[in-house]
């Protein structure tokens, strides 16, 4: 009975299926763009450095997200700006 209840209310987070899907997404973004591993992280650092020349950034809030839209990728960057440095 407990098994049945577990099965009925099982939450899919952290399951093999979710892990596989996340890994797949990440892998295919890189495959499709022919992007070598690690390059994206370098770009993110450089982008952050550029924005930081113009603005004080709120610490630890910068977010980068590579999203797929119909097999095309979009890089979405989110910076929290505190004030201009100019």
């Amino acid at each position: 009975m407990q098994q049945l209840i577990d099965w009925l209310f099982k939450v899919p987070n952290g399951t093999a299926a979710v892990t596989a899907k996340d890994r797949m997404r990440n892998m295919l973004v890189h495959d499709r763009l022919e992007l070598p591993a690690g390059k994206l992280e370098v770009l993110e650092e450089e982008l952050t450095a550029v924005v930081a020349r113009y603005f004080d950034l709120e610490p630890d809030t910068t977010r980068f997200d590579l999203q797929q839209m119909d097999r095309k990728a979009a890089l979405i960057a989110n910076f929290r700006l505190v004030r201009s440095k100019c």
């Binding site: 099982k10 093999a16 979710v18 596989a20 899907k21 797949m24 997404r25």
Partner: peptide, 18 residues
């Protein structure tokens, strides 16, 4: 196995491959 979230299902694969 899909029901147990042990492997990807139809919707997962369709979404990934568009």
């Amino acid at each position: 196995m899909v029901a147990n979230a042990d492997m990807m299902g139809v919707d997962d694969v369709l979404e990934i491959l568009s």
